[in-house]
């Protein structure tokens, strides 16, 4: 049927969710709807990412922060006049990036395997299905020890796992570690009360 070599755009289109790629006519509605663009990363731009795919700039698309940052909140989806499910297209790009051996540049959740009891709570709450329970090579009473493991390519560092873990065995690092968050909370509690007038 089609004898042309498969382009990068074809590869994205072939992944479920990626098929609507071509419909984008760059109106920018998604960009101005996006919270990540406005609050987190000014370089984030789904419209431009889709365009990069359309003209087969695969390496640029993989290097684009947008590929890794989309949290699939889907604020843009109902706003898109072409009804493109943008997060799914981005998911398709990310899948190809991972297949190409790339990993996310984001800080992701980290498991302390020494304290993790593999209760599976974090697996249940993770909205990105990034956590699985895996057996380690460590043996205890003749059985392999099971712990939670985070797939860095799926984790969006939302912190839900950290908030739900009962043994504080999973969490984010640096600014968003449990200690940092608690410290910030204390700062806030100890800060002088501000009178609010209606």
């Amino acid at each position: 049927m089609n004898h042309q070599p498969e382009t990068f755009a074809d590869q994205v289109r072939a992944i479920p969710g990626g098929e609507h790629l071509e419909l984008c006519y760059s109106c920018g509605t998604c960009v101005s709807k996006c919270m990540i663009q406005q609050k987190v990363e000014p370089e984030y731009n789904p419209r431009r990412l889709l365009h990069k795919v359309m003209i087969d700039l695969d390496q640029e698309a993989f290097a684009d922060k947008t590929t890794w940052l989309c949290s699939a909140c889907d604020l843009c989806y109902p706003a898109c006049p072409q009804q493109i499910h943008i997060s799914k297209v981005i998911g398709a790009i990310k899948q190809l990036a991972v297949e190409a051996g790339l990993t996310t540049y984001l800080q992701t959740a980290v498991v302390n395997e020494l304290t993790c009891v593999a209760c599976g709570l974090c697996v249940e709450v993770c909205p990105y299905e990034a956590i699985t329970l895996v057996e380690t090579s460590v043996m205890f009473r003749g059985k392999a020890v099971t712990v939670a493991r985070v797939d860095p390519n799926r984790c969006m560092a939302c912190g839900l796992c950290a908030a739900s873990c009962r043994s504080a065995s999973i969490g984010l690092v640096d600014k968003f570690s449990n200690e940092a968050v608690v410290a910030e909370l204390w700062d806030w509690i100890r800060s002088p009360v501000v009178e609010v007038t209606a």
Partner: peptide
């Protein structure tokens, strides 16, 4: 009015 300026690539 809240929009992306496509030429600038920012909101």
């Amino acid at each position: 009015v809240h929009s992306e300026d496509v030429t600038l690539g920012r909101v």
